[in-house]
Simulated scan of single mutants.
Amino acid sequence: MATRPNWAFRTVVNLVRPLATLLLKRSWSGQEHLPTDRGFIAVSNHVSYVDPLTFGHYLYNSGHPPRFLAKKELFEIPVVGRVLKSGDQIPVYRGTSQAKDSLDYARVVLDRGDMIAMFPEGTLTRDPNMWPMVARTGAARLALESGAPVIPVAQWGAHLVLPPYSKKPDLFPRKPMVVRAGPAIDLDDLRGKPIDTELLRIATDRIMATLTAMVADIRGETPPEHPFDMRAHQAPKTDNAEGAS
């Protein structure tokens, strides 16, 4: 049984849900794949700043109040930060000594029977056609360390409301929004092994391949043969840039 969010978070949800219903033509499916007897990790693709709302709406309405791993900067925004804290959301401290704390607390959440929601890419996809890209390994590490199942939740349509990196929403007419959960991703052959960089990459690529196939099915299109790798497209640092960083 999922832990019920406090009244402050429920109030915000009850204000946002009617707005989402007004703006989006929902097509939801696959809720039967969301476990009801244990904690789990739900992973999704990321194409718009609206994605957390649509992903969270789907999970909440399915009886699974989401606990997101979100970058710590969001918790520093006065109103937004209070809402996130009231909903037991988890700040991520990338590149600091506290970086591991977020995954440690996520394990506590899973152990008590609640779920964790994650965007494995860690940011909006940089693929020019909005396909899922090569992801970070945090979701895979959490899954392998905790033993929790990973449920893929593909979504498509949020970019019609707010395109990637845009600040200008297109609210009307209502936009179609597809959210679809699939069966747990099979990681059994990887569990119980020493967790190293290679194992994490194998698990991460398997997670993203599943999401990509689901997005392709929703879109009715063929994804690229190789996912976009943001690291390969980063410009090398110059001596001056290194000195300024």
Rank of each mutant, 00 (worst) to 15 (best):
P132Y: 08
R67Y: 06
S27W: 02
W28F: 15
S62D: 09
P18I: 10
A213F: 05
E225G: 15
A70R: 09
W156F: 05
L160E: 13
S62V: 06
G182V: 03
V108N: 11
F75T: 11
R206C: 08
N14H: 14
R174F: 03
T36A: 14
G138M: 06
D37T: 11
D229S: 02
P128M: 12
I90N: 05
M230L: 13
R174Q: 11
A184L: 08
I77S: 07
N61P: 00
R174G: 04
P173A: 03
L53Q: 07
T204Y: 12
R180I: 00
P227R: 04
M115G: 12
R231L: 14
M214E: 15
A241W: 11
R38D: 09
S86E: 11
G113K: 03
G95T: 03
A244E: 14
L15M: 13
K237R: 14
V108E: 15
Y49D: 14
P35V: 14
T11V: 09
T3W: 06
I218G: 03
V215C: 13
P236Q: 06
K72Y: 10
V161C: 03
Y93D: 06
D239F: 12
G138T: 06
K71Q: 10
V161S: 00
S62R: 03
L74C: 04
P176C: 00
L53R: 05
D205W: 06
D114Q: 05
E76A: 15
L84P: 12
I185A: 02
V92F: 07
E32P: 04
G39A: 12
L69V: 14
P91W: 09
E242T: 12
G95L: 08
G122M: 06
D111T: 04
W28D: 15
P132R: 01
E76F: 12
M118Q: 03
A235W: 01
A216D: 05
S166K: 10
P5K: 10
R10E: 15
T238S: 15
T21C: 07
A8Q: 14
A216M: 02
H57G: 06
N6R: 13
T21S: 10
N6Y: 02
V150C: 05
G138L: 07
P163Q: 05
Y49S: 10
A213K: 13
A241F: 04
N129G: 00
L124E: 01
L162S: 04
Y60A: 15
V92R: 01
V179E: 04
P224K: 07
A70Y: 04
M115F: 01
G81H: 06
R206E: 06
V12C: 11
P18K: 07
A117G: 00
K71R: 13
G81L: 10
P164V: 04
A213W: 04
G95S: 11
D111F: 00
P173V: 00
S29E: 13
H33P: 06
D127C: 08
T123V: 03
S44P: 01
N14E: 12
A244I: 09
V92N: 00
T137H: 13
R10V: 02
A140Q: 08
L74Y: 15
H33I: 08
T3D: 12
Q89R: 02
R107A: 12
P176E: 04
H46G: 08
T3L: 14
F172R: 12
A148N: 02
Q234E: 14
M118K: 01
A232R: 14
L74D: 07
E145Q: 13
G63P: 09
V179H: 01
